[in-house]
Amino acid sequence: MNRAHFHRAHFHRAHWHRAASPWWPWALAWLLPLAGCAQRFQAPGLGDQQEPALSGDGRLLAMVAERGGRRSVRLVERLSGRELPLQGLQRGQPHRSPSLSWNGRYLALILQRDSRRDVVVLDRALGQLRPLPLPADRLPERLSLSPDGRRLAIEVLRQGQLDVELFRIPAHEADLPPGTPL
């Protein structure tokens, strides 16, 4: 069953703790009780759900979910609970570390191809899966795409050490919030 469902679970209050002076923000925070609305992603046949990522306004949720023994990226529209198709991502499992641009045009992820681990970006507007090769001595572990989709931070394993490296993606048009001047 492809259709996923979100269920509003509960409301709860959260409390602020003071981390630094001055006193007035702390007092103000205590005067304004904050409520968080928890929603849980539930779909029949879906196993472990991990590595969540959100679009800029939280409209889209990407995550790695286990289904039929395969760890694949799932993209879900939060309000409707509808699972959106991801053309071109049927192979290369397991998928890891999805990351979304503001409107969800770009979905960056790591996928396994034989013994290799590749960084790719799915351009959902064009329906293109674009490989983004790294130098051979780097093994990607985790990704973070900037909200405009034009930068990528990658946690890489290199010579036994984890490093964070920043890259530009010049080929990408900026995926900006609606109404933002170019």
Binding site: F6, A9, G36, C37, A38, Q39, R40, F41, G47, D48, Q49, Q50, E51, P52, A53, L54, S55, G56, D57, G58, L61, M63, R78, W102, P147, P177
Partner: peptide, 23 residues
Amino acid sequence: SADGRWLAVQVSRGGAWQVELLA
């Protein structure tokens, strides 16, 4: 989320991982 209004967290309950959304 980039607008800071939504938080998604991976939560372990009973040995299984779930993803939970908080406004």
